[in-house]
Lab assay of single mutants.
Amino acid sequence: GTEIELESKNGQREHYTATSEDEARKIIEKAVRRGIKRIELRGASEQLIRDMQEIAKQIGLQYRTDGSL
């Protein structure tokens, strides 16, 4: 699965493990709508990382991946 670590603007951290790319995408989209400061992805697919970079650029988000592409 993909591990997703979120940090909201007030510094609250949340951790999710998505079993599918679809689920990961839903978690990320929800977080973005809620207003999130930072997202870290571990074990994400190349496609998901590309999507994440696109989203991050659009809304000026900090993100990090573990680089295991």
Rank of each mutant, 00 (worst) to 15 (best):
E5Q: 08
K30R: 10
L61K: 04
G43P: 09
E23H: 05
R50D: 04
A31D: 00
R34S: 08
K37L: 12
K9G: 10
E5H: 12
A31P: 00
E29G: 06
A18W: 08
E46K: 08
I28S: 00
Q47T: 09
L69I: 10
G43E: 03
Q58C: 12
E23C: 07
M52L: 15
K57W: 10
E7R: 07
I55Q: 03
L69Y: 13
T65V: 15
D22L: 06
V32S: 02
K9I: 14
A18M: 05
E54C: 09
K37A: 10
R25G: 01
E5G: 08
K9W: 11
E5P: 00
G11D: 03
T65P: 15
I36A: 07
E7D: 04
E5C: 14
M52E: 00
L41Q: 00
T17S: 11
G35P: 03
S45F: 03
R64T: 15
G43H: 09
L61H: 04
K26P: 01
R34P: 04
G35V: 01
N10L: 07
G35L: 02
E23N: 03
I28K: 00
A18I: 08
Y16N: 01
R13I: 13
G43S: 04
V32E: 01
E46C: 13
G67D: 13
G67R: 02
L61G: 05
Q47H: 07
T19E: 09
Y16M: 04
I28V: 05
E14A: 06
Q58P: 03
I4C: 03
D66T: 04
Y63M: 15
Q62V: 15
R42N: 06
Q58D: 08
I49K: 07
I36Q: 01
E3Q: 09
Q12T: 12
A44G: 05
Q53N: 11
G35A: 04
I59Y: 15
R42D: 03
R64A: 15
N10W: 10
R33N: 09
T65S: 13
A18D: 08
E46R: 07
I39Y: 01
E23F: 04
R38K: 11
L69V: 11
G60Q: 07
E54R: 08
L6H: 01
R50P: 00
V32F: 13
E40A: 13
R25I: 09
L41M: 10
Q12Y: 08
E3C: 13
A56V: 09
I28H: 00
Y16P: 00
R34M: 11
A44Y: 04
L48I: 04
K37C: 14
Q58W: 06
G11E: 01
G60L: 08
I28Y: 02
D22K: 08
A24F: 05
I28P: 00
R50N: 08
I55P: 00
V32Q: 02
K30F: 11
R64E: 15
S20E: 03
K37P: 02
E46I: 13
T17I: 14
S8T: 14
S68A: 06
H15F: 12
K26T: 10
A24V: 09
H15T: 10
S68Y: 10
Q47S: 11
I59A: 15
E40P: 00
R25Q: 01
E54M: 08
I39R: 00
A56E: 03
D51I: 13
R34I: 08
